[in-house]
Design a protein around this nucleic acid. Structure first.
Lengths: 319, 319
DNA sequence: CTGAAAGCGCTTACAG
DNA sequence: CTGAAAGCGCTTACAG
């Protein structure tokens, strides 16, 4: 059905190895033959069978981006930047979802050991950190770059926002607007949330400003909120809003200030001020691509954490 | 490095063909041998080389979803539903972006002819309708299902919203709220917009309500807007908002009503009413998956348009 | 029930 | 500069 190397070889009356070389621009093939071969290949609409090429060459020119879903900018934006950048470098990027399911995640990690891609970018969620597939990949030095969060895999490159600095900056902005007590909702269960938590705590204790840490939108201590302006910090506006809903009786006089990452998805009217730290997804993707391409070239790269500064801080509303 | 069939064969003292059969649960292999083989395969962490399997079997158990980008729900949501559904059926879904670039699109279409996937879902944009890659795929009866919009490929299955009915319903809601003149901004350049345009026009002319058609947010005829309540219909809130911005001097007294698809992304305060038709992405994905799976089984499927009713109509604001 | 063998369509040393 | 040949790791008739 499809045209094969042998069809071209027959048409040009040469061996298929010569055709293969000509199509790979091997300088050893004479100019004339090469041109003839390339012309007839084009005329016959030759397209190499990639499965055969992969098997013989052991390389796929394909990279994976493994993400839990496509719900947030952190999943959507790097996908686009990476896809464009890598296609310029001759790689196809496959975006693959694991739906936050450990089984699916592990199955897809296994695929990576099966020659489907030359490397993978991974946004891990809190699952399957101890997957045996990880160690198998690591043993084979499989090129892996983590985005946003780190998996419990030492020695693997991770590109993320400078979360501590970003959280500190959110704290500073809220203080400028009069906040004198903080509710912090960053989840320590993932590395990004953990860094944010630490950044915020450090900034607040330096200034001796009281704060409480909540993982969930529980009912907060009423006396803590009273007589002051509270700032609520979280990774997403959903958490902030849920906390507000649970505690709205505490904010009848002085509405709270909110500080979140990336975007505000809810109603704004109950907040005095809203600050958003926008992460530099382009920068993150760019750095991740650089690291991956170096790894693919066989270079040893520094395998630690790479912190990209936040893109900017915007205020949706000011008190 | 990686474990091969031959390693297992050696360990079990059988031929690799027996190993292959046992791992495929071929009933011809004796219960005992099969169990032994499966056990040692698991113990040795065998994972088949997919390139080799693809080459030999001519099938990849992989499907593509080819989309321009990940910016809208129409690109994000079907991706998730399809990925989950197909993984249950034993297929991996690869989401691949073409960035609205004809060259990238054609290159990726060509990949499909190269045995990278057993079939593909495509959300086409206005580009490369005449790509020769299309005809080559079609000639080979390659399983293709279009989502949202149709490409200029007759005889290819397309799953989309019942756009005409949805547009008519938006018209009806706006009329109920007092709209007595319409600005219609659906783009006729794509099949979905075209259907919406026709649906709206038909509903309006039946009721003898005046309307204007705009492709771009031009300055509209002032006298048309005057003395009445205008409804502005478009596929996205961006178009409606841009039109409003260009013509705001016409709406000082009676603010317009807006009708859009999927979501409202802009400020709401300048509109008297906002109606949103939410497409049934789940239903679209489900239907598309059904068609694809039938095609993969070799069945001839009806290859026409499949119209899925809208999920619901919500109002963000009522006059 | 199992094995020996051909073949999928490429790439790549090895000769010449 | 080009060809003959081996090999990548599987699957699948074909024998027995």
């Amino acid at each position: 059905m499809a045209i094969r190397l042998s069809d071209i070889a027959q048409a040009c009356k040469v061996d298929i190895s010569t055709v293969s070389r000509a199509l790979h621009n091997d300088p050893r093939v004479r100019e004339n033959t090469r041109e003839l071969i390339r012309r007839t290949a084009k005329k016959m609409r030759y397209a190499p069978n990639l499965a055969a090429r992969n098997l013989a060459a052991g390389t796929t020119k394909t990279l994976w981006l493994l993400v839990p879903d496509l719900k947030n900018p952190i999943q959507q934006e790097p996908a686009q930047f990476l896809s464009e950048r890598l296609s310029r470098e001759g790689y196809d990027l496959m975006i693959v979802l694991y739906h936050d399911e450990p089984d699916a995640f592990r199955r897809l990690l296994m695929r990576l050991t099966q020659n489907v891609a030359d490397g993978a970018f991974i946004i891990p969620s809190g699952i399957a950190y101890d997957a045996p597939e990880y160690t198998s990949l690591k043993k084979n030095q499989y090129p892996l770059v983590f985005l946003d969060r780190r998996a419990e895999l030492k020695s693997c490159a991770t590109v993320t926002t400078d979360n501590a600095a970003a959280a500190a900056e959110l704290v500073a902005r809220c203080i400028q607007d009069g906040a004198n007590r903080f509710v912090i909702m960053f989840e320590k269960s993932n590395s990004a949330g953990h860094e944010r938590l630490q950044g915020a705590e450090k900034a607040l204790s330096r200034q001796k400003i009281p704060y409480l840490i909540f993982d969930k939108p529980e009912i907060a201590n009423a006396s803590f909120m009273k007589n002051g302006r509270t700032a609520i910090l979280a990774s997403s506006s959903f958490s902030v809003y849920a906390f507000y809903e649970h505690n709205k009786q505490h904010f009848p006089v002085t509405p709270p200030i909110a500080g979140v990452f990336d975007q505000w998805n809810d109603r704004t009217e109950n907040f005095a001020g809203i600050y958003i730290c926008r992460q530099d997804f382009h920068g993150i993707a760019e750095k991740a691509a650089d690291i991956m391409l170096e790894k693919l070239k066989g270079k040893k790269t520094e395998s630690g954490l790479h912190h990209i500064p936040a893109l900017d801080f915007i205020s949706l509303k000011k008190p």
